[in-house]
Amino acid sequence: MSESIVGKKSFEFAVDIVNFYKKITTEKREFVLSKQLLRSGTSVGANIREALNAQSKMDFIHKLSISQKECDETVYWLELLFATDYISKEEFENLKNKALEILKMIRSIIITTKSKNS
């Protein structure tokens, strides 16, 4: 697995999400949508880390699949925050692009692992 790359990027993304959460709750006083973003955005890397300790290839794929879903959910919350004017276009595009990059990496790892599993 390209853990060093996807693991590093997902951790950096989680740090960005935590910092954005602190900003939006302080400056915009938004607590509901931002909490959902915080949970899903930090879960991406946590599930990638769990995948490293998987007990089997199927467990590995399962953990990465959860990470994939959390990453896609994070994009949803970013889109909703942008659509409701809680996040600037620049912040939105920056975070969304990082999430989509990680999402593509996760999907690629899952596909590669499944093809080797056959």
Rank of each mutant, 00 (worst) to 15 (best):
L80F: 11
D59R: 03
V75M: 09
V44A: 02
N117G: 08
W77K: 05
S40D: 12
M1P: 08
M58N: 11
K104Y: 10
D59I: 07
D16Y: 07
I48H: 03
L64Q: 01
K69L: 07
V6A: 00
K104V: 09
I102G: 02
C71Y: 06
M58V: 12
T113G: 00
A51G: 07
D85W: 04
K104I: 03
L33N: 04
D85R: 13
I110W: 01
E73D: 02
I66P: 07
T112M: 11
L64I: 00
E90I: 15
A83L: 10
N94T: 12
S108I: 08
L78T: 04
K63G: 05
N47A: 02
D16W: 06
A46C: 07
T42H: 05
K22E: 11
K98L: 09
L38G: 10
Q55S: 15
M105I: 11
V75C: 14
I24H: 09
I106K: 01
V6P: 00
T112W: 03
L81T: 01
A46Y: 00
I109L: 12
N19M: 06
D16F: 04
K116G: 14
D59E: 12
D59Q: 06
S65K: 09
M58R: 15
L37Q: 01
A99W: 05
V15S: 05
T74H: 05
K96G: 03
V75D: 10
T112D: 13
R49S: 11
T25D: 13
I102W: 01
M105R: 01
E79I: 02
F11L: 13
F11A: 08
F11G: 11
S40Y: 11
N53S: 15
T26R: 15
K35D: 15
G7Q: 01
I87S: 11
S115M: 12
W77I: 06
K96A: 14
F60S: 04
N53E: 10
M105E: 06
V44Y: 01
T84H: 11
I48M: 09
A83S: 15
Q68D: 15
K114S: 07
S118F: 12
L80G: 02
E12K: 09
S108R: 11
F82A: 08
V18I: 15
L37G: 01
S115D: 12
I109P: 02
K9C: 06
L100W: 05
K8E: 14
I87P: 07
S34Q: 00
E93F: 04
V32F: 13
E91W: 06
N117H: 12
L103K: 15
N47S: 14
F11T: 10
S67R: 08
C71S: 14
K114Q: 07
N47M: 12
Y86R: 06
Q68H: 13
E70K: 05
Y21N: 12
F20Y: 04
S40V: 12
D16Q: 08
N94G: 08
I87V: 15
N94E: 15
R49V: 05
E90C: 13
I5L: 15
K35W: 04
I109Y: 03
N47T: 11
F31R: 00
F13C: 02
E27H: 13
V44M: 02
V15P: 04
E101N: 03
V44P: 00
S88E: 14
T74F: 09
I48K: 02
S115H: 14
A83H: 08
M58H: 14
